[in-house]
């Protein structure tokens, strides 16, 4: 893959997350029953940031869980790779909660679909929202995000990479081009 451009820098990522946090509070009318669930890998660090931001703005720490969707993927009979099964930990009762699912990039919608199934197997939330840092289009399923940091039109040969301080040592969103095969 070759690097093409930096789409968001550290400040822009921070601003996008801040805005999402405000929108979440507004939509939920406060922090009642609110919780965040981050999808592996970068959704977890993004969810953590949102929890911190909500706490800063509202003075209340809302619960957070982490979700691995590997066992819910719809392509396990086909793919050549064997994805690693990672930890799912939702240390609170989902029943009646307003859950914000957090992922880094919304693309085909298949991860979100798997995440919804995985979440519902864990309990019965009142409401599930989807928050993503980047929506790059090309949906294959009828899924949309409730909160979007940035809409970025891309081509299918491009790759959007979200980097976070926690996972990659910097906050950024980058555009890469796949090698001609």
């Amino acid at each position: 893959m070759t690097f093409k451009s930096k789409l968001l820098n550290e400040d822009e990522v921070r601003r996008a997350l801040t805005r999402i946090a405000h929108e979440v509070i507004e939509k939920n009318k406060g922090t009642d029953n609110l919780c965040f669930v981050g999808i592996h890998t970068r959704g977890i660090s993004l969810a953590q940031r949102l929890v911190n931001l909500v706490e800063r703005f509202e003075g209340k720490r809302v619960p957070m869980g982490i979700l691995d969707i590997t066992l819910y993927r719809d392509d396990l009979t086909e793919i050549g790779l064997q994805p690693k099964v990672r930890e799912t930990r939702i240390p609170f009762d989902l029943n009646g909660k307003a859950v914000v699912l957090v992922d880094d990039v919304l693309y085909t919608g298949r991860t979100a679909r798997a995440a919804l199934d995985a979440l519902i197997d864990q309990g019965r939330p009142n409401r599930i929202y989807l928050a993503v840092l980047v929506d790059r289009g090309h949906r294959e399923l009828p899924i949309r995000a409730d909160f979007v940091g940035k809409n970025l039109p891309t081509s299918k040969s491009e790759v959007v990479k979200v980097k976070t301080q926690e996972d990659d040592g910097e906050d950024a969103v980058e555009l890469w081009e796949m090698e001609e095969s």
Binding site: L71, K84, E87, T88, R89, D117, D121
Partner: peptide
């Protein structure tokens, strides 16, 4: 064995079932 650890979590849920091997 790490994967088995993850499977323990599945077995601790109210719904002890995942769709991973659907179709097999």
């Amino acid at each position: 064995l790490e994967t088995a650890q993850m499977m323990q979590e599945v077995l601790a849920r109210p719904v002890k079932k995942v769709p991973a091997l659907t179709g097999f």
